[in-house]
Write a protein that binds this DNA or RNA. Structure first.
Lengths: 193, 193, 193, 193
DNA sequence: AATGAATGAGTATTCATTCAT
DNA sequence: AATGAATGAATACTCATTCAT
């Protein structure tokens, strides 16, 4: 399996760095190869084409992301607390990988429609986790019973995403993780008194 | 002033159509010129370069957007009601211009970082309107006094934006405007009981 | 009509020279553009792609070829004499354009199958002229009545083509046109006494 | 001697199949290796480079070809009959190996000039056989005494070659061997009455 | 002898922008 | 003001060959 070979990860990590530092459109295959310490042609022993590097990058990172978040909320009984931990872990992981944050929040969004559709497909795994928390919140009586799960998930995801993007655009100069608590409070209690 | 000449708007409207129908990366200057019924070179009598078309497009549309929203909330005393009207008007205007919705929610996001920074600059006008509503809500006691205005605005904008994007990605096949009330409720009351 | 513009012919003539002097595989578009005195991009205002240059080259030259040969044999009553004039004109025209001879006999044959099929299509016009001469020869009683037109045409074309190719491979160092008469004699009388 | 080892022939046979089925330009070394059931690198233990595979292929097949033809005409006294047998055997052998016919008549002609020059070198053995028949025909009085041996050989070879190529291009769908007699008649008697 | 992972040179084509008319 | 022909920079990918095992 190619995914398990060291060069696979080596090339993906190189892609994250090159894209974060040069921008999506200046991330030529030859630059990624050089950063990974392999020849240009070697890239094509592990990836079908350039787009495949980016999809694999997103898959690998997002897979790890979901895994970690599920570990985090496992065994927690309160859905509201689960939501808080999801937000916190999300912020923590991106704060810990500044390059990756730039790539996912800014650079990968300039990709073409076909790539974005594939990315959306991968994102669905994450959205399902949120859906499950919301549904559980309703079932356990912590969340309002008249909630529309889909809309609620969109609010949660849209809010988290906007927070991270704003933080990245502000050059990550404030403490993102510290926002987890107030963001959780906003989402659960709303802005009204 | 170039902005007042008929060809200025003519080219911008052509750009919206061409981008919506062909996608950002397939929206060549020559296609826009053809759609506008002018020669390629004529574009450059009205716009500095291609990026300038897109920025102007966003400015024109967003300026009109803010104007309409301010008309809508003018004279309303309740900040919460103002927030509702803002959401509703936002949804109404994009639902009324499907091409524009595709361009602002999907296509223009594929632009490079420099263009996106300029777009963010233009967006600030909109965000200020939201900020004012939130601040007024706090002052009038309708919103919680411990709200962070900036974070609250990010939640509101992130949520609205996510709703519209999801609706566009689903090919605008459900009634976006009907979501205004439940979205307002989610934002003001949160998801908790 | 693009074919009538001066740059169309200019680029085709450049292609003949570049291919003859550098070989098919070393005839890059940029080299052809340089030889033609235009920018690389200009090529694509007149030709769909590189293959289109080569097809057009063959069409233009072969069209001229057939035209000249038909002029030559027009008004001649003896089919055998027509055959002689066809051979002579064929040899004369290629002897007069050494570059073109190299291109048609050696270089263009290395093209891929798709291009060769298109070239064969164009060749059919020439083969029809030969067919007509053979048929007329049979009808007028100059040629044997039991001839298979198709086979006879293949002998004639195969022989002429082999003569030219051998001459080109021998660096055109002997007088090709002088062979017209003996070749005609061989084709009409065969090798037997 | 490498030529006697089983893998040498194994690789050449694989090359014939791969080239016939995929075309010259799609016949990568790795495909030939796979068809031969050896590793890519193994090819280079038996052949200097890719060109060497093709030259060896031609040498092997052409050597066998000449051998068979010489066996066929051996002991025949009439040069004209010898010519007939040469044509017939030539047609028979290619009709018996459809893959080889495609390779020699179509695919190998797409090779570059250097390879084609080497192929011509190998062909000389075949041409010498023809030369000998023609000379003998003149000496024995069966052929006209004013024949130019070189030109006559070019007619014979050009005609045979064109017949086979046309047959291959027509997907070998008619009986090539049946043409041996009429072709021989054409070559010996010409087209005139 | 045999393997197969790694190498890296080489090129057609697009499209924003210009400028002579 | 308007035109549109001409420009030219920039980049992903293939595949013959090598060499450590």
């Amino acid at each position: 399996m190619k995914r398990d070979k060291p060069k696979f990860k080596q090339i993906i990590d190189a892609a994250v760095i090159v894209i974060a530092e040069n921008g999506y459109h200046q991330a030529q295959v030859s630059k990624i190869a050089k950063q990974a310490g392999v020849a240009d042609g070697t890239i094509y022993l592990y990836f079908k084409n350039k787009e495949d590097i980016l999809i694999s990058l997103f898959q690998e990172k997002m897979g790890y992301f979901i895994e970690k978040i599920e570990e985090e909320i496992e065994g927690i009984s309160s859905p509201s607390e689960k939501l808080f931990l999801l937000i916190q872990k999300h912020f923590q992981m991106l704060a810990a990988e500044p390059h990756l944050a730039i790539v996912t929040q800014l650079e990968l969004r300039q990709s073409n429609k076909s790539l974005r559709l594939k990315i959306n497909e991968i994102l669905k795994g994450y959205l399902k986790v949120v859906d499950r928390i919301v549904q559980e919140g309703i079932d356990k009586g912590e969340f309002r019973s008249d909630l529309d799960v889909r809309l609620t998930r969109q609010m949660i995801f849209g809010t988290i995403d906007e927070m991270v993007t704003t933080w990245v655009m502000n050059e990550q100069k404030y403490d993102l993780v510290a926002l987890a608590r107030p963001v959780h409070q906003l989402l659960t209690k709303g802005c009204c008194v």
